[in-house]
Amino acid sequence: GQEFRFGHCRVQGVELQKLRKAFWTVKDTVQAQDHNTSVRLLRKEILQNVSDAESCYFIRSLLKFYLKTVFKNYYNKTTELQILRSFSTLTNNFIVIISKLQPSEENEMFSIIESAHRQFLHFQGAFKQLDTDAALTKAIGEMDILLTWMEKYYQ
């Protein structure tokens, strides 16, 4: 079957189509709340600058941020059942992915880890420049950008 291959990190047991379907059911609702259409957090140059070797570190930082900051705070903004169910599918599968991302931390990896972290900080920096609610809404709305980027590593 298919699996995620972020550099030398392997993740099995998560079906990307299920994540896409979960987000697709709420995409329009969520993205309609984003009024900062000229701003993008997951900018093209950030994603393009993440090399294959860096991808494991980058996705780990990004998913942790989404779980601990984005989803956690956005959940309080919604009581809509379909959104709760879709987010439950996304967040719990992200927990599975993170639990299986075990990048090796050998010394010569330091430059790769640092570069991946720099790309994540670009994203986080853009997030912090927005008002909190606007940033949460935009980050959630950009899930399709994230899932599309993750698809490159789904083989």
């Binding site: 779980l67 601990k68 989803f71 956690k72 959940y75 709760l84 169910r85 439950s88 967040t91 927990i95």
Partner: peptide
Amino acid sequence: YQGEYEILYLSHLWIPSH
């Protein structure tokens, strides 16, 4: 129901079954 995410981060949140 609550998944592991809800248990860890939003323990007050329970989601009605489909």
